[in-house]
Design a protein around this nucleic acid. Structure first.
Lengths: 242, 242
DNA sequence: TCACAAACATGACATATGTCATGTTTTTAT
DNA sequence: ATAAAAACATGACATATGTCATGTTTGTGA
């Protein structure tokens, strides 16, 4: 069973304060009454490590937006293997798709990596927003198009590259999406174990450990899950597209 | 260089006859003036085997809909390997995503498998349609959501399954999407070589040949590219999700 | 119909990666 | 601070799949 989310104490359900929402493209597009209506329908929920936002097979109830933290999307096989599809960051939308089908259930599980805050809205309110605001609908189309291209790029990488290249691609991607420059190199804010990385590139923990050891020896990276640093982005990029 | 498409002789640009378009969900949604406007903007183009509808890196100009035949979406690596992402069938939309970004180029190549007919519309007209008709926009969102789920399911299969399971998944999928029942079993209308299948499941031609020989021996399939028959769908399904 | 090219097939061998076992280091909770 | 639990690490070995070579069958255009 999923644990219950702890509602944010500083934000009542129904109207998160507008100042915190500036970094969410979909909301920035809305103006005047449309914006007010949507903000009124949004509820904030907080989750911690080990909880589930929803699980594979659960019925879809809400449309979600990541507000703070990182959410991982996972699919599992009957024999217990896991595949991590995507790390969602602030501004990312989820369940904008499955929600489109009444009666459809979640095709994967959404889990927080550490503390996260998500905004959500009933499917009904979501559809109303899309129908009222062509700009919002276009933004969602644009977002889904990007996600599809990303997913297809990932498909290509999985289908054609070796494990070390796939891992290099992952590190390059994470550096851009979750890294900040530092005297040592690019530090990643997301904390990923070797197991996490293995699930993201379709290989085993042992293989990731071996490759990361090699990368470490060759000065491409440094550190472990807590404080992983990219030391040579260019060489990683070269390896990724070799 | 791509060869030039040969325009359909029976349909003038600008208004393909409405009776042929009944199987395209996106168009069926439109009513009255919206529908007329869209049909007026649609142009039909025909392509044959060996031609390209567009190639990876080309600038995006049109939004496309498959009308007849099968179109394959391919990505290539620097060293010449190919990955086939998807077989598009009548009713499928493409470039509804990349087109959303002005200046973006095609992330992959679109090639006909035999004779195909596609409808297309300028990006400008496409955006106008989405802005004028919330129902059309919702249909596109629904379509893209499905494509994303499909792509993520494929990611999971590539990341966790063996080659024979991936091939079984492919055959099960093709049976549903391009097969028709027959005294011998389910015949596929798309003609796929072992090479085509290899590109679709992320493996080599030799591996596909070996696995197909085994499937043939075990009475799961029969025939070759010209007339491939699925003889035991249930066993293939079982293998795919084992 | 013939010649040619593409597709299919199979063996031998190389290698990347998975599996299992065991031990060390780091993190976490009490 | 200490114990327990994760995470990290490394070796030995198994195996799925890639690579290359060679030959047969099938399809196709002149």
């Amino acid at each position: 069973m999923s644990k219950q989310p702890s509602k944010s104490s500083s934000n009542r359900a129904g109207s998160p304060s507008s100042s915190q929402l500036d970094k969410i493209p979909l909301l920035n597009i809305l103006r005047g009454q449309d914006r007010q209506r949507v903000l009124h329908e949004l509820t904030e929920a907080r989750y911690g490590k080990g909880e589930f936002i929803f699980r594979e097979g659960d019925p879809t109830e809400y449309f979600h937006i990541v507000k703070e933290g990182t959410v991982k999307c996972v699919k599992s096989t009957p024999d217990g293997k896991e595949c991590t599809l995507k790390m969602l960051m602030p501004g990312d939308l989820f369940c904008c798709d499955a929600a489109a089908f009444d009666g459809a259930s979640h095709p994967g599980t959404a889990q927080p990596m550490g503390d996260v805050s998500v905004l959500r809205m009933s499917k009904k309110a979501y559809f109303e927003m899309l129908r009222r605001s062509p700009e919002a609908a276009l933004e969602v189309i644009k977002y889904l198009g990007n996600r599809l291209n990303e997913a297809q790029e990932k498909t290509k990488i999985l289908a054609t590259d070796r494990a070390d290249q796939r891992l290099a691609s992952l590190l390059v991607d994470l550096a851009a999406r979750s890294g900040f420059q530092d005297s040592q190199g690019i530090k990643l804010t997301v904390r990923l174990t070797r197991q996490d990385m293995a699930n993201m590139v379709g290989t085993t923990t042992e293989t990731v450990i071996r490759i990361m050891s090699r990368f470490k020896r060759d000065q491409l990276v440094a550190g472990t899950a807590n404080r992983l640093v990219i030391r040579n982005l260019d060489k990683l990029k070269a390896l990724a597209s070799a």
